[in-house]
Design a protein around this nucleic acid. Sequence first.
DNA 1: CCAAAAGTGTTCAATCTACACCCATGC
DNA 2: GCATGGGTGTAGATTGAACACTTTTGG
Lengths: 224, 224
Amino acid sequence: MTQQSDRAQRQHLSTCGVAVAVVILTVQREGLTVLLIHRAAPPYAGYWALPGGLLMPGETLDQAAARKLLGETGVADVYLEQLYTFDAQPDDPGPRAIVAYFALVDAGRVVLAQRSSWQPAWFPVDRAPELAFGNARIVAYALKRLRAKLGYSNVVYSLLPEHFTLTQLQRVYEAILGRPLDKRNFRKRILSLGIIEPTGHLERTGAHRPARLYRFSRREPITF
Amino acid sequence: MTQQSDRAQRQHLSTCGVAVAVVILTVQREGLTVLLIHRAAPPYAGYWALPGGLLMPGETLDQAAARKLLGETGVADVYLEQLYTFDAQPDDPGPRAIVAYFALVDAGRVVLAQRSSWQPAWFPVDRAPELAFGNARIVAYALKRLRAKLGYSNVVYSLLPEHFTLTQLQRVYEAILGRPLDKRNFRKRILSLGIIEPTGHLERTGAHRPARLYRFSRREPITF
DNA sequence: CCAAAAGTGTTCAATCTACACCCATGC
DNA sequence: GCATGGGTGTAGATTGAACACTTTTGG
């Protein structure tokens, strides 16, 4: 987000009671990480916080969340879902309610918006610093929901490239759940879920037997 | 809600961007019914709508929802849960976002707030009139969530009196799901869920064998 | 030839589904 | 004595969990 629009939002703030916050998650070598921005100005100057801000005129909640996501990461068309609406902390100025979203992005496609003074950075979800605005409860909630959705949805489609192997997919699941999974059972369950399909091509990289490539049948959230 | 506080909220309206709406459901002879109020004044004069309104100063979202529920029905301490946050319809005045809740109440305990000009009334969920503020999507969502939660939670505790028979409980499940359930399977599943326990007493009313009475182990939402 | 990752089936336990009859009571 | 609703068990199918070895490739 630019400094201009930030200022515009601050003026808007006293007349608008609702804000969005986005829990942007990705999987890297360190495991599951969350994108945080560093606050330079009060309130909570010096703290880290979730990307977020006020609704702009004429904008829907989903659009505001997508705008925040795009502004911080440069990505669109990823898994983005409303999580829950939290009360603001009693003593915080500004909005009364925070509509939280969570998004999953492929770390490889993200270009962090270093242009702003916000210094966005990835933190492992279990080693995040203390957060502004009581945002920690939002991250905890996102994590819980994500883990629950792994079992019956295609949430992770935006954490992987267009084509991928079952082993890559399994690594993502393991990173999110924080525990190893049995290979054969994983393959059976995933295939019976019907969210992915073979491309018919093979991956021929690496010092091993070529691997069948898959893709997600639908690259959009499936709701049940 | 009184006319005074309604007027106070209308003034508050232009400075506050968030409202709550409550889908209050109960089970009656006709099946699952939803509480609606009749709008006398614009916007949507003459339409039926969900009980709702703006957040009052210093109040949390949950408190606002509970206040609305108490104001319309006189009940508290029932199942009340946040559902989802919806965008207001683009052309509607007032709040930008509607935080929807759903509540389940025992029709026997409710005293409808006939004092106001709002004429609250129960409508079968599948035969409700056209609703103001695009509220129909909220009712549909509540219904879907309620049915999903039946299988693994104690949601229905506030639809039944303190003591009840398994058959009464089954009637409630059938009314919500809209289909008959097998008696033996229902009893096995419910008992294995561990949300109810026998009281040790018997119901001796009716021209039939006395029935064992049960109660819910916890009369508060269980979160999983 | 060796390291690295891909691929593949079976057994057992637990859970879910379908299904029918006898019993205690009030009238 | 009969109508009403209460109470109970089993067999078959499905689902989920545990578990180990062979294959192909690049270096």
